[in-house]
Design a binder for these strands. Structure first.
Length: 620
DNA sequence: ATATCCTGTCATTAT
DNA sequence: ATATAATGACAGGAT
């Protein structure tokens, strides 16, 4: 039966190897039911003194996942997944995606209406209560059609700034119900943005500081272009909700985002209420992978972006992609050194305190310095493996038996340094073999006295008292067949037979106890190492979390600044520029950016806007 | 004198 | 049924 089990197990292992090679992870340990698990142990045979014990269940596992014994690549893969899950579990400030969709604001052509032939205003083609500043693909096509007339061709050079493009060179134009979008060659594609690197993140962090300084504020157009490009460069891949959005739209977002909204936009051309600026290529569907785009949650003011630190404790990781964290990790702590203090000050202290006080594990801090997970895992597993394979031999009764078998019959073997090294009061004598005539080393009188009086174990004394012709070691280590033969062939009395069996039982149990205790100590050591490793991992993840929070804050400030810039280029019916305290930009569930005036909290937006429109109409 | 550690031993269970 | 491994519990010596 045991052979059948082993045969089955071997086959199972081979199947597991094959599955591992094709990427299928199989936890064979559960099938083995502890018979040969863990697989890393070498089967030393049924008499191995170091076989599977429940202590092994406490080891050879990493974070609750069984270590795949045959496929390290899979282990690395699952370890990565595990790290990501742990980062997600840590939680992080959330950056609602609808707010970030405002990045998709595009340049608005504002040419001279006479030149561009756009006489119709408020024609009502769109609902009078709303004006699309930007629209999807359809509007983007229209925008392109108007571009030649407006003299806005070839403004793909972002670096030249808006003033070199049609944004400043051509008269401003606002279509009757929409603001045109440049959807031409995009020097900075979002595909590239999605792969923004560490340096880009660092420049983002630096850019916020520049934005925060009014003196560093460049010209409106240039600043807007630069800011938008910078924002898009640096933030897309770092934001969890944007990640899904960008991924959904990367293929189609090829818009020249470097262009800016033209200034002095007449508010009469747009309807403030439910005004929508939609990206030209923005799909009309809501990305299902972006829960933040839920209609009820979509319309959030940009100004609230930086408030995420106050109320939002929602975990960052829910939607985080691995790529995001790869870049965050690449950013490293070095980027934080260059971060502007003003940027750092925007972080909610309570948030950081929460980060530091996030005590998932309350572990002793004196467990050593941070360990690299790989090295620690390797050292832990390898050392334990080595100990099991090598150290066990010292306690292996099989090895002892083999050694004894090699010296049979009952050749003298001094095992006092390997097995019988424990108790001084119970250490066995150098074995004497009275019936075999083995030559003994001459002992001094003192030694003989010591051996006779001090080092004789109780069983040895009993054996001598019963005139047993075998030592304890011989009785314990002789094979069972020979032991049974000895019991039968020597004509021992029942008391002698009982003593022989007891001596053998106690001796084997003593070895078993030694092995058991060694395994227990090894298990404790392994667990301590794992604690140290997990603690270091936790510290590392917390650092990454703090870094992500700072990056989020930087992006939020960028958006706030850009929102102010966009609003400053718009004009109300009185020709006054819009201010952030009166208006805000929101992003709808469909990705459209909407200019919304400040509302009273008790009045619903749509109703209030319609009412305002009616009142305006009556006045006119 | 006491606490703690180490080791042997027993009882029990599983293989 | 027997032998043996594994392990918790206990006792006793050593420190």
């Amino acid at each position: 039966m045991q052979f059948a089990k082993k045969y089955f197990t071997d086959g199972l292992i081979q199947l597991t190897i094959l599955l591992s090679l094709i990427g299928v992870r199989v936890d064979i340990d559960s099938y083995l039911n502890g018979y040969y698990s863990p697989l890393i142990e070498i089967n030393l045979g049924p008499s191995s003194a170091y076989t599977q014990t429940p202590f092994h269940s406490l080891r050879d596992t990493l974070d609750g996942y069984s270590v795949h014994p045959k496929c390290p690549e899979l282990d690395y893969f699952f370890a990565s997944r595990r790290l990501l899950d742990e980062v997600r579990s840590l939680g992080s400030p959330r950056f609602p995606s609808p707010q970030l969709n405002a990045w998709l604001v595009h340049q608005v052509t504002a040419p001279d209406k006479a030149e561009c032939g756009q006489p119709s205003q408020n024609s009502g083609t769109e609902d009078s209560t709303s004006t699309e500043l930007q629209d999807g693909q359809q509007e983007g096509v229209n925008g392109r059609e108007h571009l030649p007339d407006c003299g806005q061709e070839g403004d793909g050079a972002v670096g030249a700034g808006p003033c070199t493009t049609g944004a400043c060179a051509v008269p401003k134009e606002i279509h009757n119900d929409e603001l045109k979008i440049k959807e031409e060659d995009e020097p900075v594609s979002l595909t590239h943005l999605a792969h923004s690197s560490t340096l880009e993140q660092e420049s983002l962090l630096g850019g916020v500081g520049a934005l925060s300084h009014p003196s560093g504020f460049l010209g409106p157009s240039a600043d807007t272009d630069q800011s938008w490009s910078q924002l898009l460069h640096l933030s897309v891949s770092d934001l969890e909700d944007l990640d899904s959005l960008v991924n959904a739209r990367l293929p189609e977002l090829d818009t020249d985002l470097s262009s800016a909204l033209q200034a002095d936009m007449c508010l009469e051309d747009i309807t403030l209420q439910d005004t929508i600026m939609s990206p030209p290529t923005a799909p009309q569907h809501t990305d299902p992978s972006s829960p933040g785009l839920a209609p009820g949650l979509a319309a959030l003011p940009f100004a609230s972006v930086c408030n995420f630190t106050g109320g939002s404790s929602q975990g960052l990781g829910d939607g985080l992609d691995e790529a995001v964290f790869e870049q965050i990790n690449q950013l490293g702590l070095e980027g934080l050194e260059t971060m502007d203090q003003q940027l750092l000050s925007c972080l909610d202290p309570q948030l950081l305190e929460d980060f530091d006080s996030d005590s998932g594990l309350s572990l002793e801090s004196s467990s050593g310095g941070p360990l690299s997970p790989g090295s620690s895992e390797m050292s832990s597993s390898s050392s334990s493996l080595c100990e099991e394979e090598c150290g066990a031999t010292g306690y292996s009764s099989e090895v002892d038996s083999k050694s004894l078998l090699e010296h049979r019959p009952w050749s003298p073997i001094d095992l006092s340094e390997s097995v019988w090294h424990d108790h001084s009061y119970s250490s066995p004598l150098p074995i004497t073999y009275p019936h075999k005539g083995i030559k003994e080393e001459p002992l001094s009188e003192e030694e003989e006295y010591g051996l006779e009086e001090r080092e004789l174990s109780r069983d040895e004394v009993r054996a001598r008292a019963m005139c047993l012709p075998f030592s304890v070691l011989q009785i314990v280590n002789m094979p069972v067949e020979e032991f049974l033969e000895v019991l039968d062939s020597h004509g021992f009395s029942s008391e002698q037979v009982t003593l022989l069996r007891d001596i053998r039982r106690r001796g084997k149990n003593k070895l078993a106890a030694q092995n058991c205790r060694k395994r227990k100590l090894d298990a404790i050591t392994g667990l301590q190492e794992e604690v140290s490793r997990l603690q270091a991992q936790r510290e590392r993840l917390l650092r990454d979390k703090r870094l992500t929070a700072k990056t989020m804050c930087a992006v939020g400030q960028q958006i706030q600044q850009l929102t102010r810039d966009v609003l400053s280029r718009l004009r109300d019916p009185l020709g006054q520029p819009l201010t952030p305290d009166r208006y805000s930009l929101q992003c709808g569930a469909n990705g459209k950016v909407v200019l919304v005036p400040a509302r009273r909290p008790t009045v619903s937006g749509a109703t209030g806007n319609k009412t305002d429109k009616r009142k305006k109409a009556k006045k006119q």
